[in-house]
């Protein structure tokens, strides 16, 4: 069995905020709409309720985020992905849905510090003053798609693994000491 490796091997940078590439993290894309058993199926795997539009429900290492009217992002520990997929397949059997392991297709970053929002403010067309706690915002970070939410005195940023180096470069440059807003 090969060891899972995160996109940048846990790279980090200490500027006016701290950037850390974390992971590998188990991520599952769940697509379903109007499925009755959906809230129970999600509750069984992440022990959270089904998030309202644009929200993310966080429960320790697990989370469920609302990505679009028919798409959810499930976050679980990397080792639990196959068990989670099996649980979803069982509880949603016969219902029209799609659950796919996308853990290795994504990179995930933590931006931490008092001025963490300033790092992201330079990269995304988002009003961070209006971003509610527990709100998942899908947007762009400079030229690539990203999803971000506030968590534990900082932000978590998710992007595609293929652009992990680009996003790390963006965050690093944006967090250069002396470039605070």
């Amino acid at each position: 069995m090969s060891e899972p490796v995160s996109a940048l091997g846990g790279a980090s940078f200490h500027g006016f905020a701290t950037i850390r590439e974390i992971g590998p993290l188990g991520m599952i894309t769940l697509r379903a709409k109007g499925v009755k058993a959906l809230d129970k199926a999600v509750k069984a795997v992440t022990d959270t309720k089904l998030p309202a539009p644009r929200r993310i429900e966080i429960n320790g290492e697990k989370a469920c985020g609302w990505m679009s009217p028919d798409e959810y992002l499930l976050i679980v520990p990397y080792a639990e992905v196959s068990a989670t997929l099996a649980s979803l397949a069982k509880s949603l059997a016969g219902e029209h849905h799609l659950a796919v392991d996308v853990s290795d297709a994504r990179a995930i970053f933590r931006v931490e510090g008092d001025k963490a929002a300033d790092v992201l403010r330079k990269l995304s067309p988002v009003d961070f003053e209006m971003l509610q706690p527990g709100e998942l915002r899908r947007t762009r970070a400079a030229q690539v798609a990203a999803a971000m939410w506030a968590q534990d005195a900082g932000f978590t940023v998710v992007c595609f693994r293929s652009v992990a180096g680009y996003v790390m470069g963006l965050l690093t440059h944006s967090a250069q000491p002396g470039s605070e807003l």
């Binding site: 539009p53 644009r54 679009s68 009217p69 067309p125 915002r137 899908r138 947007t139 762009r140």
Partner: peptide, 11 residues
């Protein structure tokens, strides 16, 4: 109208 985000043109 689906997610309620006030999206700027570049999004």
């Amino acid at each position: 109208p689906y997610c309620g985000v006030k999206a700027e043109e570049t999004e």
